[in-house]
Computed example of a mutant assay.
Amino acid sequence: MQFSDELEFSHRDRKDIYEYIERYGTVDYEEARRSLDMSPEAFGHHVAVLRRDGIITRTDDEELRVAFEDESEETYVDEGLEVTIRQAREDDLTGLVGAIREAISDKTYIEGETVADIVESENVLLRHNELQKRVFFVATVHGDVVGWVHINAPEVEKLEHTAELTVGVIDEYRGHGIGSKLLDHGVDWALDNNFEKLYNSVPSTNEDAIEFLESRGWETEATRKKHYKIGDEYVDEVMMAKMLA
């Protein structure tokens, strides 16, 4: 998915429609038209063109969304458990935030907490604009989100080759290869989008996360002493990274 300033809009109103949808995630067709103060004829035409070009989609419930760049799904079975890995959709938001909060209930993944807080406050999962690129892949069991990988890339010129990644699985579903599958999807997405480095930070007390990332080729770049205060305890921050190029 391209940023709005990289997309080629042949009409200013189409750019306005795209940016409105991108800002709010999922919008009601008629509400968006009224908010943008367009006639039904003009709005309908521009929406039709944006849909034709694969930039937005329109649901059966008359909602408009930014089109997903990856509609593919991977389903596998491990010890009788059927798991589907796919890109998150806006209607996954509540389940995704719940899964993140459950997975980090022990307060040992500060970056994960931050992701959940931001997504919940903004009420939007995906971001594709001139300031930020944010995408999630989720693992689902019976349609419910049980794990996630999140890639966030703020648009800062000197850091445009890097992206932050967080990944997690709720406790009951660990041990089925879900974390590895999610991480692979995140890394593949970063490679496809020409990123050269992924980074992630975890408290030193989260030994499982550190061991998991190390087993997948991540390295510790630095440690910041007493960077976190969890309860009454000061905890070091372990700064990890994986070079992709």
Score class of each variant (00 low, 15 high):
Glu6Gly: 09
Leu7Lys: 13
Phe9Cys: 11
Ser10Trp: 14
Arg14Asp: 12
Arg23Gly: 11
Ala32Ser: 14
Arg34Asp: 02
Arg34Thr: 07
Ser35Asn: 09
Asp37Asn: 10
Gly44Arg: 08
His45Pro: 07
His46Phe: 14
Arg51Glu: 15
Arg51Cys: 15
Arg51Asn: 14
Arg52Trp: 12
Ile55His: 08
Asp61Cys: 11
Asp61Gly: 13
Glu62Thr: 10
Gly80Glu: 05
Leu81Ile: 03
Thr84Gln: 03
Ile85Tyr: 02
Leu93Gln: 06
Arg101Phe: 02
Ile104Glu: 04
Asp106Met: 03
Asp106Asn: 06
Glu111Trp: 05
Val115Leu: 00
Ala116Ser: 00
Ile118Asp: 05
Val124Cys: 03
Ala139Gln: 02
Ala139Val: 01
Val141Met: 01
His142Ile: 10
Gly143Leu: 01
Gly147Leu: 01
Trp148Met: 03
Glu160His: 14
Thr162Met: 15
Glu164Asp: 14
Leu165Arg: 13
Glu172Cys: 06
Ile178Gly: 03
Gly179Val: 05
Lys181Leu: 09
Asp184Glu: 14
Ala190Gly: 15
Leu191Asp: 01
Leu191Lys: 06
Asp192Tyr: 07
Phe195Ile: 03
Pro203Ile: 04
Ser215Met: 07
Arg216Leu: 12
Gly217Arg: 09
Glu221Ala: 01
Lys225Tyr: 09
Glu237Thr: 07
Lys242Pro: 07
